[in-house]
């Protein structure tokens, strides 16, 4: 069974029809990439999965979105618990104005997970998982803003990992970073795949080709094509996809 199942999703920002009848399934412990031109709805779709769009006033959703077989938009769903299970990394690094340690510990503290000892171990574990431990282990009490952009983004990934989500959503996680930092993030995604289901939105088609198992191509709110990444890039089924990945527009 797929861990994420979207069924006939329509989404509106007041009058704007942002997603049109989108259906797809995402397998456990896979990396799924969404590509497409700006404003195509890929980020909107991503933010549906942890109900981040709830924060935007005047939106409307139709269709069903199942995570682990449960409708996350059903009445009585605890959004905070849902978001704990579905971590998110944003386009720009957004560490809190706190120390490095407190940034990672934040999710544990707000979810009242464990004692001091537990938190310290989990912080270390998460930083190691995000390949940041060696760089920051001696300055845990320094402000997170003292880190470089790439380090901050890995800090944000570690922060998301600390609460042990099932799914990790990444909204263009490398778009604000230099090539070296980007490569580190991509390596990281590859490593994390064994434990997490990862959904990544990217502008960068090479990145999608490098890191993902399956790829979805969005255009004007429609999911044009969703298939195995290799197939998508070597032999796309639709002409629009072909045009986009060969760089003819977008």
């Amino acid at each position: 069974m797929d861990i994420i199942e979207a069924k006939n999703i329509d989404f509106y920002y007041s009058d704007f029809h942002a997603l049109k009848n989108v259906s797809l399934g995402i397998a456990k412990n896979s990396v799924t990439a969404f590509i497409g031109p700006s404003g195509c709805g890929k980020s909107t779709f991503l933010r549906l999965l942890n109900r981040m769009n709830d924060l935007i006033p005047d939106t409307k959703l139709a269709g069903k979105c199942l995570v682990n077989g449960e409708d996350i938009y059903a009445k009585g769903v605890d959004v905070d618990t849902l978001r704990k299970k579905i971590g998110m990394v944003f386009q720009k690094p957004n560490p809190f104005p706190k120390t490095i340690f407190e940034n990672i510990a934040y999710g544990l503290r707000v979810n009242r997970m464990g004692n001091k000892e537990f938190i310290r171990n989990r912080v270390e574990e998460s930083l190691k998982a995000a390949a940041l431990w060696d760089e920051v282990k001696d300055k845990m009490n320094r402000s997170a803003y003292d880190l470089s952009g790439g380090q901050q983004q890995r800090l944000c990934i570690a922060r998301a990992l600390a609460v042990k989500p099932d799914i990790l959503l990444m909204d263009e996680p490398a778009s604000a970073l230099d090539p070296i930092s980007t490569a580190k993030i991509e390596d990281l995604i590859f490593d994390l795949k064994t434990q997490y289901t990862i959904v990544i939105v990217t502008h960068n088609m090479q990145q999608a080709a490098r890191v993902s198992d399956s790829t979805g191509f969005f255009m004007l709110g429609e999911l044009i094509e969703f298939s195995d990444t290799k197939k998508m890039f070597l032999n796309p089924a639709k002409e629009q996809t072909q045009n986009y990945i060969t760089g003819r527009f977008g």
Binding site: N50, M52, L55, D80, T81, R83, K84, K85, G87, M88, F90, K92, N94, P95, F96, P97, Y106, G107, V110, N111, C156, R159, A160, V163
Partner: peptide
Amino acid sequence: AMREASLALGAT
């Protein structure tokens, strides 16, 4: 971004 980061971690 700061609020979203917090909410995305399951904070109320």
